[in-house]
């Protein structure tokens, strides 16, 4: 698979829910190995975009192609083989162990203990494998959930990995670890990633492309050093953004 395999082709996406236009005219393409960061104020449509890309709801207009096939033509099962989703769901039921959670990455397949182990090793989570998932810290839980997606995708090349604010509750070290990990997997396995975030510096750190959303519409979709600037971010957040020490809202 060449580096430039087109994974996602999104054209003129529109999503209306109960009369509200959540996304309008969103178009972009994403290639194997590329990470796209999606930024926008709360309610700008980031989660909606992720949800539509995951195939959870159908767009009102426009088209989504995954590996040159319409997304809607995939069965849930065949989609699960090439697309992973980390959706920040609240809690895991029952006293599942860390290894149990990772194993659920492929609920219908024969358990591959070796692959589970290597996913846990990659995310530095092997020491917890017999611990109850619910007793882990937020950052640890996230890493286990990433290992679960990693196990789900396995050795697939050119898959799609959707991540909803993966670093939202992480301390600096954990965030560094996770971002580096995602960057490495994307490059090594040619997996395309779409991740939402509230932090432009995350986008700057690992993204190949940045999509800025404002009220469901794309402000800019380009390389980070072009897309991320004071002007675009100020429009994006309806606020005066300064770049003095990283990206921040200027006070006063």
């Amino acid at each position: 698979m060449s580096e430039r395999t087109q994974l996602l082709d999104v054209v003129g996406l529109r999503v209306d829910v109960d009369g509200a236009r959540l996304l309008n005219g969103v178009s972009f393409e994403l290639f194997a190995g590329d990470i796209m960061a999606v930024l926008g104020a709360n309610g700008a449509g980031k989660s909606t975009l992720l949800s539509v890309l995951a195939g959870e709801c159908a767009p009102s207009a426009g088209s989504i192609s995954l590996l040159s096939r319409p997304l809607s033509s995939y069965s849930l099962g065949s989609l699960a083989e090439i697309r992973a989703l980390n959706a920040n769901e609240p809690s895991v039921m029952f006293a599942l162990t860390v290894a149990d959670v990772v194993a659920l990455g492929r609920p219908f397949a024969v358990v591959d203990a070796h692959a589970i182990r290597s996913a846990l090793i990659e995310l530095d989570a092997l020491p917890w494998q017999h611990r109850e998932f619910a007793t882990l810290s937020t950052g640890e839980q996230l890493r286990v959930q990433l290992a679960r997606s990693r196990y789900q995708l396995g050795d697939v090349r050119g898959g799609l990995w959707l991540l909803d604010e993966p670093c939202a509750h992480l301390d600096l070290a954990q965030r560094d670890f996770v971002l580096n990990y995602l960057r490495r997997i994307a490059t090594e396995q040619g997996i395309a990633m779409v991740m939402t975030t509230h932090d432009p510096s995350e986008a700057q750190a690992i993204a190949d492309r940045v999509l800025l959303l404002r009220r469901g519409e794309v402000i800019v979709c380009d390389a980070p050093n072009i897309a991320l600037n004071r002007q675009s971010l100020s429009i994006c957040y309806d606020a005066v953004i300064s770049a003095s020490a990283g990206w921040g809202v200027s006070v006063g």
């Binding site: 849930l76 083989e81 989703l85 959706a87 769901e89 599942l96 659920l104 609920p107 219908f108 789900q152």
Partner: peptide, 20 residues
Amino acid sequence: ANALGALALGERTARSLGVD
């Protein structure tokens, strides 16, 4: 049973893992 087991992770996640 497997599909029910995957629901422990949440409905969205279970769906993304292939559970209808």
